[in-house]
Computed example of a mutant assay.
Amino acid sequence: MAAYDLDDVDRRLLDLLQEDARYAAIDLAEAVGVSDNTIHNRMQRLEEAGVITGYTTTVDHDRAGLSLYFHFTCTARISDRAEVAEEVMAIPEVVEVTELMTGQRNLHVRLVAADDEDITRLARQLDELALEIDDENLVREERREPLDFVEVGEMLDREE
């Protein structure tokens, strides 16, 4: 699948939507410097092209009573990796599974829990699947920020 050719308006729109997907079209239009009709059309095109794949809500797990974050590093047989990843994702407390293209330590699992008993129960659930738990860590803090499409676009334009 070919990459969608983003222009400056698309990049700015994507940056703003990553900050807050609940922006009103009129606010987006003002921030980007185009009409709200242009914003609607651009969002529709970006959705149809698969660039925008959905809109999500960010939840503060701590405030929701799930203050323990764990990272499990696991190994699944390469032939079973994708299926095992789906089984892991079916566990409600799992918030992310990353499959790596490697033979060992090829599944990384992030999950949230309320207390130590939850972690023990969840570790047992993982242990019952077709994988080996190689490492388990309590996460102190995670930092994350959305991709800056405007800045990345400027860098790509300079390279051309």
Rank of each mutant, 00 (worst) to 15 (best):
residue 61 H to I: 10
residue 108 H to V: 09
residue 13 L to G: 07
residue 154 E to T: 02
residue 67 S to I: 01
residue 16 L to V: 00
residue 92 P to I: 05
residue 56 T to E: 15
residue 36 D to G: 12
residue 85 A to V: 06
residue 39 I to T: 03
residue 32 V to D: 01
residue 129 L to F: 00
residue 72 F to N: 01
residue 47 E to I: 10
residue 98 T to Q: 10
residue 70 F to S: 06
residue 10 D to Q: 10
residue 52 I to N: 00
residue 21 A to Y: 04
residue 154 E to M: 07
residue 61 H to D: 11
residue 98 T to H: 10
residue 100 L to D: 00
residue 123 A to W: 05
residue 77 R to K: 06
residue 125 Q to M: 11
residue 22 R to G: 13
residue 25 A to M: 04
residue 58 T to C: 08
residue 122 L to H: 10
residue 37 N to C: 12
residue 118 D to Y: 03
residue 102 T to D: 04
residue 10 D to A: 10
residue 34 V to K: 09
residue 30 E to V: 08
residue 131 L to V: 02
residue 47 E to W: 00
residue 42 R to A: 01
residue 131 L to H: 11
residue 71 H to N: 02
residue 30 E to N: 07
residue 46 L to E: 11
residue 59 V to T: 07
residue 71 H to P: 00
residue 46 L to S: 03
residue 67 S to C: 00
residue 80 D to K: 09
residue 96 E to S: 12
residue 132 E to H: 08
residue 83 E to N: 07
residue 49 A to H: 11
residue 149 F to K: 09
residue 88 V to G: 04
residue 93 E to D: 07
residue 141 E to W: 00
residue 71 H to L: 13
residue 52 I to L: 09
residue 138 L to E: 15
residue 94 V to G: 01
residue 16 L to W: 00
residue 117 E to N: 06
residue 39 I to N: 03
residue 21 A to I: 08
residue 153 G to A: 04
residue 50 G to E: 02
residue 105 R to N: 14
residue 137 N to F: 10
residue 85 A to Q: 07
residue 42 R to F: 05
residue 82 A to E: 14
residue 51 V to I: 14
residue 48 E to G: 09
residue 75 T to G: 03
residue 100 L to M: 09
residue 73 T to D: 08
residue 117 E to H: 05
residue 61 H to C: 08
residue 150 V to C: 06
residue 134 D to C: 15
residue 63 R to Y: 05
residue 83 E to C: 01
residue 6 L to N: 03
residue 118 D to Q: 09
residue 20 D to G: 02
residue 26 I to L: 13
